[in-house]
Design a protein around this nucleic acid. Sequence first.
RNA 1: GCCGACGUAGCUCAGCUGGUAGAGCACUUCACUCGUAAUGAAGGGGUCCGGGGUUCGAGUCCCCGCGUCGGCUCCA
Length: 677
Amino acid sequence: MSITVTLPDGKPLELADGATGADAAAAIGAGLARAALAVQVSSGIGDGSAGADGQATPGELRDLARPLPDGASIAIVTNKSGDAALSLIRHDAAHVLATAVLQLYPGVKISIGPSIENGFYYDFEFPDGVSISEADFAAIEEHMRAHIKSAEPFERVDIPVAEARERFVAEAQDYKVELIDDLVAAADANHPLDTVSLYTNGPFTDLCRGPHAPSTASVGAFKLQSVAGAYWRGDSTRTMLTRIYGTAFFSKQDLEDYLERLEQALARDHRKIGRELGLFFFSELSPGSPFWTPAGMVIWNGLTELWRAENRKRGYREVSTPILYDAELWKQSGHWEKYRDNMYFTEVEERPMGLKPMNCPAHIQIYKEQRRSYRELPIRYSEAGLVHRHEPSGVLHGLLRVRHITQDDAHIFCTEEQVQDEVVQCLRFGFSIYALFGFQVRLELSTRPDQRIGSDELWDRAEGALEGALRAEGLQFDINAGDGAFYGPKIDLHMTDSIGRSWQLGTVQLDYSMPERFDLKYTGADNAEHRPVMIHRALLGSFERFIGILIEHYAGELPLWLAPVQAIVLTVSDRVRAYAESVLAELTARGIRAELDDRDESIGRKVREAELKKIPFMLVVGGREADEQTVSVREHGAQRAAQDGSGSGQASDGAQTLSLDAFQALLEAAGGRIPVG
RNA sequence: GCCGACGUAGCUCAGCUGGUAGAGCACUUCACUCGUAAUGAAGGGGUCCGGGGUUCGAGUCCCCGCGUCGGCUCCA
């Protein structure tokens, strides 16, 4: 008896019946056999063991020690196999972590420990009175290293469910028992659960679907990174477990490279850059609400100008509305019912009032101020609307998660027939803005949540309209079921920041409910009253968050048109101070944001400080420039210049001598003006 | 909100097992008058997050609160 499998190059390989992945690797070559970690089985008949549902799914990773199904296509996975291989050893590392923790902290309860993007974690419940911190990592890592060094094989056994359950009950591993019970509950007649798989390495046995590398030795280099609380099964009503995060790589070099990248990402952190460049800061006196400095306001105003011009171009009309309202308004809108916990309330002369967390009810007031005809629609109102939301203290994060939020908000009131067109226009509008900054955007369609207002028929129509708009544009999108706003479904526009976190920028939300709640109407061509549809739309999301994202995206080196200071005049000595002042005045008169550094410091120091402040242009003026009425222009990021002393047109490497006219032309060619077209 | 860590000069941080607070940068002044990433010297500057407690004595130990950071939940 023999079986035949197909190798990645299409060649068949004949093996003895019952041959394993390891046998296949050995048949191909001794080197491959040594390097093999697992085997990818692409099709064929399952081996009947638990966990698999009869058929191997395409690309399923399996232990080397398991028999191969006849007729399968296989690929031996080694440390050259990329992400799949990395994720395999990170899962191995999670088991090694649990092994060490169980040894060091008897009585600990284990739960789950998967590999994740960039690493792995394991969640534990430590015995009462025991808590661990990063200070304990050294001891844990030392134990982990010992287990890796002794190359403990990962041994799989498939045992009857009842036997496994008994085992974990005996060990008081409650979470494992719960997992088994849930697996049983999820099984049905078509997919009965007879056995579960356990993996053992050294002293540690875990309920685990696998696969694993042949032994712990495959974990080449690892590091524990942080400890955090995490709810069991992500449910905030259940126990808070202790999660230990770590990462693992095949080589020490890879690990070091990764840690180096993490550090570089930290250098882009908008909170750090914001402080260093003096753009904004936070105070304990108003948590979650940024204070903007004059420099930061240049960025803010630049964006606002762009936003205003682009909105006007697209038929939006700007409005401005109050921030404090009678609580009755929030009852009518549904915010009181669904969103109260996130709102700020106060009393004004015994009258309950609330700060707006959204602008929609305010814009509705403007709509309602007059009778509306179908001829007016669509009506598009925009507002840089200041809203306040009580974000829980634990989620505040610099500018990216604040309580004081200035949305680039807009509401479109239109007929049902106009909805799709309007949504499409909103999306295109968003893409054109993002294109200015080179953002990669991901779209998400969020559908009806549990907590919602409005009938199912309304939701059907609204969800259908949004999906229709996405399909009409041929756009790719993910569906995020149940994540819509309480009044309607939405299309969210997300981007990923420099350290891999995903942030929502814009949102386009469809709303049939508010118009009903507020009894909005328009008179149709038939002279009858009709209900308009509302579209809520933000593209930057909020000015706060967007600026935070921009800072990280550009690592503080903002596009020239947003740079708080575009050029700084640096004096070589105080003998040219008068000339430098005239240069500054002339630059300012030309609408260039310029500053002057005429301190009694060396030119080297002034250049260094201007470089650290990431000022795009440094204009050095000394005796030569004063005589010739020029400036020596050095661009930010220029190579460290060598002395030259030639005194010719090129003052030194990386700098060129220009008239102010020529400098202005250079600056404008480099994008010094707001890109409104 | 939940778990954990952290909170010392404007910034970055040191301060051992409790004995009355320190460095670098920044700031001020003086000298230097300088050519593209740090000139030198001197000086000023601290409710050690806030409030309780233990102690002869608390930046240091304990409790409570606030804030920040990393996660979890949440982000309507």
